[in-house]
């Protein structure tokens, strides 16, 4: 007990260490204002890519859905109409939904896809107040035609894709007017705030 009570040297040493650390470089990344560069193949929010002519890559084959270990993907395929093709092949995805709350971001869908249509992007800011908002349908997964065709993982130079800012628009966390009906595709609907009072 004497040793513990009179160990003044240890206390002084401890004080020295804390004082030194006061001036040390802090590893904190101040997240909302400073964003970390993720690895190019970071597994984040999915994206459905297009071909250079604007057609969708997805052919509605459902391979991603069968590969998914979390049963997060639901694809409903449909025939392409010969005069208004959605994708170059015979079929396209009439409905394509990923439940990001089920998804474990393993990337197996990306591996399975024969046309490299579904890819995981480094976008990770998906938080929302509504459960339904995590079911991403084609209106949010598909790259808008005016934004480009989407980048495959190997072509992302520094992790964050150039259009990372798009997430904020895609997500619309607070603005209920711009929210989404979870299972609706096509035009955007007002969210029904199911399960919440009022």
């Amino acid at each position: 007990m004497r040793k513990q009570l009179f160990n003044v040297g240890a206390i002084l040493q401890g004080l020295g260490i804390t004082f030194k650390y006061m001036f040390a470089r802090r590893p904190t990344i101040e997240y909302p204002s400073v964003k970390k560069q993720h690895a190019p193949r970071f597994h984040g929010l999915h994206e459905l890519r297009r071909y250079a002519d604007g057609k969708e890559r997805c052919i509605g084959c459902e391979l991603c859905s069968s590969a998914c270990p979390a049963n997060a993907i639901t694809v409903i395929g449909a025939e392409n109409a010969p005069d208004a093709r959605v994708s170059p092949g015979e079929r396209h995805a009439a409905s394509y939904e990923i439940d990001e709350l089920r998804c474990i971001f393993c990337g197996l869908c990306e591996e399975a896809c024969p046309t490299d249509a579904i890819v995981l992007t480094p976008r990770f800011e998906m938080a929302d107040y509504r459960r339904g908002a995590f079911v991403y349908s084609k209106d949010r997964l598909l790259v808008p035609s005016d934004v480009g065709v989407g980048t495959p993982p190997d072509e992302r130079p520094n992790g964050i894709p150039a259009d990372l800012g798009r997430v904020a628009e895609v997500k619309s966390t607070m603005n209920v007017d711009r929210g989404y009906s979870a299972t609706h595709r096509g035009e955007v609907l007002k969210t029904e705030r199911k399960g919440l009072a009022g």
């Binding site: 804390t18 004082f19 650390y21 006061m22 001036f23 040390a24 802090r26 590893p27 904190t28 101040e30």
Partner: peptide, 13 residues
């Protein structure tokens, strides 16, 4: 703040 710095955090900012 000071405790934050000593623990390699920025403290409230």
């Amino acid at each position: 703040k000071i405790m934050g710095w000593m623990q390699l955090r920025p403290g409230p900012n």
